[in-house]
């Protein structure tokens, strides 16, 4: 059962990485694999198959010998699985079939390395050790024809670099997946809609507004208006350094949508620079209800909702609260 799940996760990764028969063919061409090489690899197949266990041991002995490698070798269950995969890898390396299925098998090891956090440079060093011992065995097998043996080993090395290519791509892809997920998380977190009082929402916008984020802002605002039965929204753009025509358009559409849902929007915190560039761009924001700063906007919003903020200090009764 777990095996089935593992199978499919590798297949999903292969699909996401667009590891098709075509792209694998392209990979073979990139490392320069030719029919000639296949014949040479077939010629040393027996040499490799005879010592599969030994070669696999070279790989894992190297890893357990250095600190960076122990993230894998300290985990006995995963090491067993990796050893199994490495053995079938070695058998497949001289198998002559380097299509999509072969590439997909490489992914499973890559996922395993990624899971324990085995660094690529450590994997590559261990793989190099393994290749070296294969090379030595190949050279020893035909001492009378060293040039032939060397050419055969170089043919096999093309496969090795094909493998490294797939594994590096898979690890990078997984790492970028984390970045993509974090970006999404930051986007979600960076568009909070805060309820300040009953029927009054605050929407602080900070940083860069792109199309995706603008949509998120609109979405979460409209949902919050519905959920809180809000009548007034203060949208603060103090933290937005640049507003171009597209972003301005997004903001206006958000305001219009809020209006349709029965909430009026007060925009605060347009900087002098942004105001000037909006005027120069020719964007008419006069339909927006803008107020200089956030404090003024909140005062106005509270007034509109019938609130009156009274100071606890009787001498200042009625005056808006201000520091100092």
């Amino acid at each position: 059962m777990t095996d089935l799940v593992k199978e499919s996760s590798t297949q999903i990764l292969a699909r996401e990485m667009a590891l098709t028969e075509q792209s694998v063919e392209r990979r073979r061409r990139i490392v320069g694999l030719e029919p000639d090489d296949l014949a040479r690899i077939a010629g040393i197949r027996e040499v490799v198959l005879a010592q599969v266990d030994h070669f696999a041991s070279v790989f894992f002995d190297y890893l357990s010998g250095i600190e960076e490698g122990r993230v894998l070798t300290n985990n006995r269950a995963l090491t067993e699985r990796a050893r199994e995969l490495k053995r079938s890898h070695l058998i497949a390396m001289v198998g002559g079939d380097y299509g999509r299925a072969y590439a997909e098998q490489r992914l499973e090891l890559a996922v395993l390395y990624g899971r324990v956090g085995l660094e690529l440079r450590v994997f590559i060093a261990a793989f190099h050790r393994l290749l070296r011992s294969i090379g030595e065995a190949v050279m020893k097998s035909t001492p009378q024809a060293p040039l032939e043996a060397f050419a055969s080993f170089m043919a096999l090395k093309k496969i090795a670099f094909f493998d490294i290519g797939v594994i590096v791509d898979a690890v990078v892809f997984e790492r970028e997946r984390v970045i993509r997920q974090q970006q999404d998380a930051i986007r979600e977190l960076s568009t909070p809609v805060l309820q300040v009082r009953a029927r009054l929402l605050l929407l602080p916008i900070i940083g860069v507004i792109d199309t995706h984020r603008a949509r998120l802002i609109t979405d979460s605002l409209l949902k919050a208006i519905r959920a809180n039965r809000a009548k007034v929204v203060v949208m603060d753009v103090t933290g937005v350094a640049t507003i171009d025509s597209k972003v301005a358009n997004h903001l206006m559409q958000t305001v219009t949508a809020a209006k349709l849902m029965g909430a009026s929007v007060i925009v605060t915190g347009l900087s002098a620079e942004v105001a000037q560039s909006l005027v120069a761009l020719g964007i008419d924001l006069t339909t927006l209800n803008t107020i200089g700063d956030l404090q003024g906007g909140m005062d106005e919003a509270e007034r509109a909702l019938g609130y009156r903020v009274v100071s606890m200090d009787p001498r200042r009764d009625g005056a808006p609260l201000s520091p100092g």
């Binding site: 350094a241 640049t242 507003i243 171009d244 597209k246 002098a272 620079e273 000037q276 761009l281």
Partner: peptide, 17 residues
């Protein structure tokens, strides 16, 4: 100056977009 920086950034934004 900071105002002109913003104007420039906005213009760059428009043509890049």
């Amino acid at each position: 100056l900071s105002t002109d920086q913003t104007l420039l950034a906005t213009a760059i934004s428009e043509v890049a977009r």
